[in-house]
């Protein structure tokens, strides 16, 4: 009887489940988010040089990946975590997940990107900014909003799409940017005006960009919260080769997110894990970051690819918020956002 065979199979599986754990001799496991990527040749060069095999373990978005590591801290699914960003840094540090380490090459990182804590190493950064559809504004004969405050101008009613900060990382970054710029109370007054201006709130980046943004969808929103690196991606992934970016960035709205890596304290292979973090901060990996993950390398001695030089915007003074303040305020601000904009 087949059901009996299955039952026997399941019982056997459970019995086997007690044995066998290859964490100590298999590849080094890099836990990360779904957006992680690296060129094959860059990773193979690392393995050839060090003899260390790397297994990449993507565990959902940045928040989910960190939460899963926290929940399984005694026996995690990997040795190194990459992708903790500034919005979740304090949660990660409070959970005491990481071993202290000073990676080789840290002296090449700009001081503004250092976390002031040697348990995490900065690897990349990106700016969340409002993007605009250049052709749409030209056709409409409308000036592009000059700054953050202008988004609430009735002239731009029904034009902006943002993401829900409760479900989306860029959505949270944009909310934090408004609070950093305007102060908490003024920021939520600003969100009230945005609501009156018919702001569209979607749950994630893909839904806003590919579901509402006029340039990338049949939607009716020529303004969308995205990244400073989106215009070079539009050039690189255009349907027909082009030299001009179809979208632009409103620099005044940019909020900076820094991504960190840390060695998980429970790893049985701390030495290999340190080599892996060194690799993430090595010139080879850093130079690979722009075109694989569309973020910026933290090392200042690494050249950016041409398409980034030509089309990416690096704001001189992006909005930045202290991780401790983010951690203290996040939950309350998300609740207040829900109250103000979504009810």
């Amino acid at each position: 009887m087949r059901s009996r065979t299955l039952a026997a199979l399941l019982v056997t599986t459970v019995l086997i489940a007690g044995c066998g754990d290859d964490a100590a001799d298999g590849p080094v496991r890099l836990i990360t988010h779904d957006s992680f990527d690296v060129s094959i040749e860059v990773l193979e060069a690392f393995t050839a040089e060090t003899g260390i095999e790397v297994e990449i373990v993507p565990l959902g978005d940045a928040g989910s990946a960190l939460n899963r590591v926290i929940l399984t801290a005694d026996d995690p699914e990997g040795d190194v975590l990459f992708g903790v960003d500034s919005t979740f840094l304090t949660r990660a540090l409070d959970a005491d997940l990481f071993l202290p380490y000073r990676a080789a090459g840290l002296d090449q990182v700009d001081a503004s990107l250092l976390p002031g804590d040697d348990r995490v190493t900065p690897i990349s950064f990106g700016d969340v900014c409002v993007n605009y559809d250049i052709a749409w504004f030209a056709d409409a004969g409308l000036a592009v909003p000059a700054d953050l405050a202008a988004l609430a101008d009735p002239a731009y009613a029904g034009l902006l799409a943002v993401q829900n900060p409760a479900t989306s990382s860029p959505g949270l970054a944009f909310l934090l940017g408004t609070i950093e710029r305007l102060g908490e109370d003024e920021a939520f007054a600003f969100w009230e005006r945005l609501r009156a201006n018919d702001v569209l709130v979607s749950d994630g980046w893909s839904e806003a960009y590919y579901g509402a943004f006029t340039h990338a969808s049949d939607g009716d929103r020529p303004l969308v919260v995205s990244y400073a690196s989106s215009p070079p991606a539009e050039v690189l992934f255009a349907a027909e080769p082009t030299d001009t970016a179809p979208t632009g960035v409103i620099v005044d709205t940019c909020f900076r997110q820094i991504e960190y890596a840390g060695i998980l304290a429970s790893t049985p292979r701390a030495d290999d894990a340190r080599r892996l973090v060194d690799f993430l901060l090595s010139p080879a990996f850093q130079a690979d970051v722009p075109l694989t993950m569309f973020v910026f390398p933290v090392r200042s001695d690494v050249a950016l690819p041409d398409v980034f030089v030509a089309h990416a915007v690096l704001p001189e003074r992006p909005l930045v918020m202290d991780p401790v303040r983010i951690d203290a305020g996040r939950e309350g601000w998300i609740a207040r956002f829900t109250d103000t904009v979504l009810r």
């Binding site: 779904d34 960009y209 990244y227 539009e234 690189l236 992934f237």
Partner: peptide, 13 residues
């Protein structure tokens, strides 16, 4: 899901 994670007409297509 991965294709829809990046901007660009090619990715959407």
């Amino acid at each position: 899901h991965r294709a829809l994670g990046l901007p660009g007409a090619v990715n959407l297509g």
